[in-house]
Design a protein around this nucleic acid. Structure first.
Length: 861
DNA sequence: GTCTTCGTTTCG
DNA sequence: GAAACGAAGACT
């Protein structure tokens, strides 16, 4: 039995991010495991922590006497030992704290916070209370016992009210045993001093315990009487006046199992007091019972059976199935265009894993976790499926997560964080639309679900399947490298017989030359007209990225900037306010230019709204559904709009990226991209890749069923290789060209990147800190012999760019500098960066400079 | 000589 | 990140 536990405490600081040893109380020994969540005393208070290790003897270093773990927070450890290990791997790879990685793995509902309670000292509520109080008070020279208690009838004249504990507080403490300190402080604001002194003198005792933000939901539940005969007898014995009670008793006698109190009262029309009367007499049992919040409760899913596979599908499936059966780690890239039947392969592979007694995780981009998608998996695997996505309430999420943890679900389908689903015997992890940027978390820990999945698969001997029509260059390069294409599986033709639609590229410069100043090219205008006449539907995509809705004065060039950040404010039509993306600062949009007082102030790039207005002008009576941040913020708005569109209640679906993902409507025969190149010109090395992926994906949206489809892409750069390749549905061609650029410019996959951003209110402090960091890193890299230019010949190379001001040089009144670390070969770059930060911080402790590390960054804007 | 405040250390 | 600790200054 382990006597000592290593605990990572919940303090988000690098300096405390190591295991601290605690004694395991004897009564907890059978319960505590690596992954248990506990409350431990730390620096004079109780904190939440995770047990990461167990030992029989205390470590050599550390104090002679260990403090004991104060409480065990969950009967079943929220994490498994392999997840604890995975968290450590994440903290090393992504330069974050172990505690941050652990926190990312559990649902937000169990982020416990210490709650402080007050209770009377032992004996204080006995008749000897006065004596106890007296002796306590006698130890001190302040206050007197009668003043403390201020009992009715006792005099406490010489002290002002603030010196006495309110009677009511004492009474409450006697009745309930304890009270929340915060609640006491609010109810008796003037008693602060008295409480403090009572605590100091031991009359009151403060206890802390960890309480979760959201608990298990319980509901009052009525159980039918165990002894039905006795209950029937009681029915006779009840007085004639107790009509309601008789009705209730008859009702419960007819029950097979428990019902909720709410349901019983609704069914019988009785009141809660009647039920209570019966319960008090012991005829029925009313108890708090745990309830599962099932977000899909009451929904029927059409049962689906495995479909026959095409030859191509079968070939791919066999490869995956064999790997799953070998239970050795393996990664496959499954490249297949939209509609090539990847999902059926996923489902049959999962089926096989389940048959082998193993579990599976399916990751999908948040945006494509549509009801349609859920329906397919629920239809095949029924209740074995747990769904985790951001639109669930945190309570619902928690319940789905606990279902996984307890073994009630064998398949988890969800967004990024579902990669941490607490399964013990993972057999398969599927990542659909592998190239999607939503798999990269933008907050600390800045992990990529794909890389975490591969590591988790290594731990479990599981198989990872990465699916995409347009794999990211990193994944593609890795798959091509691995065993002569062994990891690359292809599905080229569409499973449903329909070919990819023709793609027309229109050059908007030509349009302008011919005098067309509208945002629709003639081709798109005609195509829209034709769809309206034929009663077919169109999807219009506005590539929002790069389209800022900033405010500009046309006569003097003034733009509205955030006073706290180095960024222009964006305009929101709905509220007529200008808002900062980064700090939330908002102000009313001016009607005249604040700088030159001209009325020529305009709101630019209003995006979808502007397109909508123009559509209404060109096609009177056209029915448009607009989907963007303004129209989809409320819960389920997203689904609501899509449902309307699916029912052909609109002619055009207009939106940003989100309309491009995973939608499948039979009457959509036209897809138009308003301005393909807004994302092409971004100063990000992935700009071309993103544009290509988006355009290709959009192209797959039209004509997926029986009606032939058409795609029109409007651009100012028709000769750009990303545009040309997407027009030809030519992934290989795009990759070849893009790889040339990446190699030339020294970007992934030819090297790897770590972006280190530092911030501080004062430029001078920041500048000094960034220099310190850079110096340390160069020193460390030099010692390892890896500091050399990337274009050199060495197998291992690391170079440091910067420090320079970040592209957004100030956010929330903090200046920002960044360093870009580029490296190639087996360089322990993350380790070097962590060490350099540690040394830089040690050199100038408490400088207030914040370091933020992004390993394999996605946006370097 | 005791109380207060600040910066520093350490938390098991 | 925050309590505990110890050193240096403020006041009885």
């Amino acid at each position: 039995m382990s006597r000592v536990a290593g605990v990572i405490v919940d303090v988000p600081s690098r300096s405390t991010d190591r295991p601290f040893s605690y004694a395991v109380p004897a009564d907890m020994r059978a319960w505590i495991e690596p992954g248990s969540r506990v409350g431990v005393p730390f620096a004079g208070r109780t904190l939440q922590g995770f047990v990461v290790s167990l030992a029989d003897e205390p470590p050599a270093e550390g104090p002679a006497k260990l403090k004991p773990i104060a409480e065990l927070l969950d009967p079943l450890p929220p994490l498994l030992p392999d997840l604890v290990e995975l968290a450590r791997w994440i903290s090393e790879k992504y330069c974050c704290t172990w505690t941050a990685a652990l926190q990312a793995m559990v649902p937000s509902a169990i982020k416990g916070k210490a709650e402080r309670h007050l209770r009377l000292a032992d004996g204080a509520d006995e008749p000897a209370a006065e004596a106890a109080a007296e002796s306590a008070a006698a130890r001190s020279d302040v206050g007197r016992p009668e003043a403390f208690w201020a009992m009715p009838g006792e005099a406490a004249p010489e002290l002002p009210p603030s010196e006495t504990l309110p009677q009511e507080l004492v009474r409450e403490l006697r009745r309930h045993g304890s009270l929340k300190l915060e609640a006491a402080r609010q109810r008796w604001p003037e008693a602060g001093g008295a409480i403090k002194r009572a605590l100091a003198q031991g009359v009151l005792i403060e206890e802390t315990s960890i309480r979760d933000r959201i608990g298990v939901r319980t509901q009052l539940t009525v159980y039918p009487p165990l002894d039905r005969e006795a209950a029937k007898a009681a029915l006779e014995a009840l007085p004639g006046t107790a009509k309601r009670q008789k009705e209730l008793l008859l009702y419960v006698l007819a029950l097979e199992g428990p019902v909720t109190l709410q349901a019983m009262l609704a069914d019988t029309g009785a009141s809660a007091s009647s039920a209570k009367a019966l319960a008090d007499k012991g005829y029925i049992l009313v108890e708090e019972a745990e309830q599962q919040r099932d977000p899909y409760a009451g929904r029927e899913f059409r049962r689906s059976e495995p479909l026959p596979l095409t030859d191509a599908q079968r070939e791919v499936f066999v490869r995956i199935r064999d790997a799953v059966e070998r239970t050795a780690p393996a990664t496959f890239l499954l490249q297949g265009v939209t509609g090539s039947g990847k999902t059926e392969i996923y489902m049959q592979s999962i089926q096989r894993a389940l048959e082998l007694g193993r579990e599976a995780i399916v990751l999908v981009p948040e945006i494509s976790l549509t009801p349609q998608m859920v329906e397919r998996f629920k239809g095949r695997f029924g209740d074995e499926v747990a769904v985790l996505h951001s639109r669930l309430s945190s309570g619902e999420r928690y319940d789905e997560w606990r279902r996984i943890r307890r073994g009630g679900a064998k398949v988890a389908i969800g967004a990024r964080s579902a990669v941490f689903a607490p399964f013990a015997r993972l057999g398969l992890i599927v990542i659909d639309e592998e190239h999607e940027s939503s798999y990269k978390q933008e907050e600390t820990p800045k992990y990529h679900a794909r890389d975490v999945a591969v590591q988790r698969a290594r731990q479990h001997g599981a198989v990872v399947v990465l699916g995409s029509a347009t794999p990211s260059l990193e994944t593609y390069a890795a798959a091509a490298r691995d065993g002569a294409g062994g990891a690359l599986l292809r599905l080229s033709e569409r499973a449903v017989a329909s070919s990819l639609p023709p793609v027309t590229v229109t050059d908007m410069r030509d349009e302008l030359k011919s005098g067309n100043r509208s945002m629709f090219s003639r081709a798109l205008h005609e195509a829209l007209q034709a769809r309206l006449e034929r009663g077919e539907q169109s999807v219009l995509l506005l590539n929002r990225r790069g389209y800022s809705t900033f405010v500009i004065c046309r006569s003097c060039g003034y733009t509205a900037l955030c006073p706290h950040c180095d960024i222009s404010l964006t305009y929101h039509q709905k509220t007529r306010a200008m808002r900062c993306h980064y700090c939330g600062h908002a102000e009313l949009a001016p009607s005249a230019c604040p700088s030159c007082e001209s009325e020529q102030i305009r709101y630019f790039g209003a995006g979808t709204q502007k397109v909508e207005e123009e559509l209404a002008k060109l096609f009177p009576g056209i029915r448009v559904i607009r989907m963007d941040v303004d129209t989809t913020t409320e819960k389920n708005a997203h689904e609501k709009w899509l449902k309307l569109f699916g029912e052909r209640k609109a002619d055009v679906l207009l939106g940003t990226q989100m309309v491009a993902k995973g939608l499948d409507f039979p009457y959509v025969t036209l897809v138009g991209v308003i301005a393909a190149d807004t994302s092409l010109n971004l100063p990000d090395f992935r700009a071309a890749e993103r544009t290509f992926q988006l355009l290709t994906q959009v192209a797959g949206r039209a004509g997926r069923h029986h009606l032939p489809g058409e795609v029109i892409i409007q651009t100012y750069n028709p000769e750009h290789y990303a545009v040309i390749a997407s027009q030809r549905h030519d992934y290989e061609g795009f990759v070849a060209e893009e790889m040339k650029h990446r190699r030339m410019m020294g970007y992934p996959p030819f090297c790897r990147l770590i972006l280190v951003t530092m911030s501080h209110e004062q430029l001078a402090t920041l500048s000094a800190a960034s220099d310190r960091f850079a110096r340390r890193l160069i020193e460390l890299a030099g010692q390892r012999g890896v500091l050399q230019p990337l274009h050199g010949s060495g197998a291992r190379a690391l170079e440091l760019l910067g420090p320079v001001a970040s592209p957004i040089s100030r956010i929330k009144d903090r200046y920002r500098f960044q360093c870009m670390v580029k490296y190639r070969g087996a360089v322990p770059a993350a380790e070097l960066v962590s060490e350099a930060i540690r040394q830089a911080e040690a050199e100038a402790p408490r400088s207030g400079v914040l370091f933020s590390v992004d390993v394999d960054p996605h946006m370097i804007l």
